[in-house]
Each structure stands twice: as structure tokens, then as C-alpha cells.
Design a protein around this nucleic acid. Structure first.
Lengths: 145, 145
DNA sequence: CGCAGACCTCAACTAAGGTTGAGTTCGATG
DNA sequence: CATCGAACTCAACCTTAGTTGAGGTCTGCG
């Protein structure tokens, strides 16, 4: 029972991912598999949790590269525990908060501009190149959608 | 003064868009231009407002195709008024609200799952294929980013 | 007029996140 | 042992939103 490895088809069925996506994630280093003597992939059960994490992360808006980095912090020596997954999930929380905050600011700005009707390239919060340049100062702008 | 048409370089400088982006938007039908006898583009001043609208819309997360559709509702016979732009901007407000709401739900779900540590493919709100299928029922899932 | 810099078109390329298809091989069942 | 679905690899393609480069033309200033 410990040695129950899953075939690609089984993983696809249980995770809802396409087999082609499994191949892709493996090429990208997000998951891994062993091979049968006949060169077919076999997955350990915890791949399902990884795929779960990948999907949730994508919903949060994290690009695959960062998801890979997060997954890389999992211990290789043992199967990840609940605590491991909790730690990773908690890491996205701030991303999500920042994103929500940004969209709320955008909404408020949009309301202001609906009032002023401007969309002006000068002077409009929503649309000022100068401000955008300023915003780009600290940190990446990935959150900007 | 009425006949002041802008060159691509001037529009690029004033809008912050690259000239290549102006070409692209024109190919995609989001903006238009007239030509000099020597085949160079000249833009009416209101192209700046269009570009402003395009940028704001992209910040809201609207794909170019939909932005084009929105711009297509502007009257061709006259220069768009402040009311026209207000109408379009207001249209995005609900998109933004829906998006924010969705992210807030996601955040709450994530909190729940940080508690349960699950990321389980069954039974976890964050990660249930059945639920995702249900969600996909009405309308596109573009907001899900 | 001459020349630099801005502009033209068209094709190809980028990035992310995969999907699709062709041609071939495994592996489990009858 | 034949067969058929599932799996394999590799290359090509898809979408979105543009950028880059090659090769050629305009426009305006001196």
C-alpha cells in the first residue's frame, strides 16, 4: 500500500489536470515521477497535493516560476507534512492581500475618474505616467495585472 | 488649432505608449489614424483619451478584445464627450467589483485551508474540481486569473 | 540640396501556460 | 499471442499583448 504509485491517467483523473499538463509541469520542474521498466511515468501519492497547491497558487495569481520556487523549499528527504503545506499557503496570503488592496485602490480611483470624466494623461491618478513610474520604484509590478 | 494632428512620436511621448503599441492597437481596431501624402500616420487629439481608456481598462484586467468592443460603442459622428467616457468607465466598475469579491472569497478559503492544511482534491473548497466545474457554468472565467 | 532622424511595412520573435498531432511502444486482457 | 487503450517523445501550434529587426521612405532643418 505504501508502494502504490499512480499512472498518469489516474493522476489526471484525480487531480483534474490534463496529462499534457502533467508532462509540462514535470518539464518545468514542479513535479516529478519515477519510471516503469517500460519508461512509463508513475507518481507518488503526494503529487496530488502538489497539484492541488499548484492550482490554488495559480488562482492566487502566482506565476509558475514562483510556484516552482515555493515547491523547491519543501524537504526532499521526507513526504511534506501538513505544516509544510500550511507554511507555503500562508506565503501567498500577503500576495493576495496586496492584490486585493491594489484593486480596491483602482476601484476608488475609477470612481473618482467617473466623477471627473477625465482619463486624462496628465493629472489623472488612473492614468499618469509619472505616477506609474513612481509606483515602479519599489518592487516588481507583477501585481498590476 | 482644430487641425492640429499629432505624429506617432508625439502621441507616444504624450501617452507613454510605444510607437509599436500604437501600430498594434491600430491593427487591432482600437484606434485609428489618417495619413499624410507621404503615408505617415497622423492622430487626432482624442486618440490620447482612447489610449488613456485602454490603459485604465487593462489595469482593470479587461482583455483588448473587450476594450475594442467598448470603444466601438462610441459615436463615430462626433468626438466622444465626457459622458461617453463616463459611461464606458462605469461599465468596468462591475468587472472590478466581481474580481475583488472573487479574490476575497479566495482569501477566505485560503485562510480556511491554512487551518485545515488540506489542499485536498476532494472536499476542499479551494481545490474541488466539481466546484470549479460548477463555477464555470455561467459566464467566462476570465476573472479567475 | 543633403542629411539625420522619424516613419513605413512585414515578418519573426518573446513570454506564459499549456494543447495537439504524428509516429511509436507499453501493458493488461481475452 | 494478438489487440487495444494508455503512454511515450518531439515538434509544432495556440492565445494575448505586444517588441524587434531588416530594408526602404519621409520630413524638416541648415
Amino acid at each position: 500500500m505504501n508502494a502504490h504509485l499512480m499512472s498518469p491517467g489516474e493522476v489526471a483523473a484525480r487531480s483534474g489536470m490534463a496529462v499534457s499538463a502533467l508532462h509540462f509541469y514535470e518539464r518545468e520542474g514542479l513535479i516529478s515521477s519515477t519510471r516503469t521498466p517500460g519508461n512509463q511515468r508513475r507518481y507518488r501519492r503526494d503529487v496530488l497535493r502538489r497539484l492541488g497547491f499548484i492550482r490554488v497558487s495559480q488562482r492566487v495569481g502566482i506565476p509558475l516560476g514562483e510556484i516552482r520556487e515555493a515547491l523547491a523549499t519543501l524537504p526532499e528527504s521526507r513526504t511534506p507534512t501538513k505544516q509544510d503545506w500550511t507554511r507555503l499557503s500562508r506565503g501567498w496570503r500577503s500576495h493576495l492581500d496586496a492584490r486585493i488592496e491594489q484593486l480596491e485602490r483602482l476601484r476608488d480611483d475609477l470612481d473618482g475618474c467617473i466623477g471627473c470624466g477625465c482619463l486624462s494623461l496628465r493629472s489623472c491618478t488612473l492614468n499618469n505616467p509619472g505616477d506609474r513610474l513612481a509606483e515602479q520604484g519599489p518592487g516588481p509590478v507583477r501585481l498590476e495585472v
